[in-house]
Design a protein around this nucleic acid. Sequence first.
DNA 1: GCATGCATGTAAGGAGTTACATGATTCA
DNA 2: TGAATCATGTAACTCCTTACATGCATGC
Lengths: 182, 182
Amino acid sequence: MELNPTAYVILGWLNLGPRSGYEIKAQVEDSTRFFWAASYGQIYPELKRLETAGLIGGTSSPQGGRKRTIFEITPDGREELRRWLQAPPETFELRDEGLLKLFFSGAVEPQDAARTLRAMRDQHLAKVRQLRGIEPKAASKGDGYPLIVLRFGVAYHEWVAEACRQMEQDLLDEDRDQRRSA
Amino acid sequence: MELNPTAYVILGWLNLGPRSGYEIKAQVEDSTRFFWAASYGQIYPELKRLETAGLIGGTSSPQGGRKRTIFEITPDGREELRRWLQAPPETFELRDEGLLKLFFSGAVEPQDAARTLRAMRDQHLAKVRQLRGIEPKAASKGDGYPLIVLRFGVAYHEWVAEACRQMEQDLLDEDRDQRRSA
DNA sequence: GCATGCATGTAAGGAGTTACATGATTCA
DNA sequence: TGAATCATGTAACTCCTTACATGCATGC
């Protein structure tokens, strides 16, 4: 990665068609954000940098008296995007406070660990519902790669939720057995 | 979270027994790091802050002429750890450059997307091997929660690796069909 | 004698979030 | 008229990584 990561998110979205910064943010929120987030504080400054670098171009197109800038990708930008897409991915980071708590749960009661697992499961099931909610639109558009990734997302969160359920049950079973033998 | 996230990693490890900053880092590297990383740049300053706050205590215990500080958790520290463990987890962040590339792969050839998936799969299988490598030691120690989390880690990366394999195959099958009908 | 590991630390900077400020438009 | 949404932006901050510096100990 030569450009910063947010730059590629922007190039990727603009390659699908011209958009404003606001629209990029909104679309990130209900799609790529489940595996790659981006905030206004990154997007707006990065749009300026990419324009200066000639990888995107902005056109003022106000809606009524409300000013707005629509950006589109340039040939150079498209080339840079393709170059990045063809290089092997590097970053894979997971930051899961629930797993961290579970790891250290020897310091608390089994019921506390079970509650952590239940909360984790609820989070993942909520994600499943959210992703399922946007699937029909993506499917009807025949959305190619975004649809593949979306379906992966659903399966992923379902799998993790089920693993949490299983761990919780094992935990409670074991705890019950230990109480019985005591 | 009132303390910073790294603080809880430190409290958690010290609750398992006294350790130096160096040992904490080493142990994070081959266990919690798969879902929660921590670097020297966070650990050493945080150890000082926690000591000032009275949540841990440091004792100088040089090995030969090599100076070293062993930290242990205090009753206040243990209480803070338990309080945190009993609160529901919040942070769950995934940052997966491979999925990001896959999402935007409409801009490149199917072979490029397949290569991305193969690289992702290789990464996850490497993780499986790494985690499997430390499992025997954890299992023989009867390591409780750390072992549960470790086994989850193995299953998790195996599942993701298999999902990548499946997506790659679907992709190549579809591409072959399209070439045939063209 | 040299590489590796133990051990502690910091400086610089990148990456990212949050909160705020501003102002127009739309719709109930 | 007021809330929600469209739209852009920045300042302050946290979090985290990387790279470097230092120096002792151990084993080849």
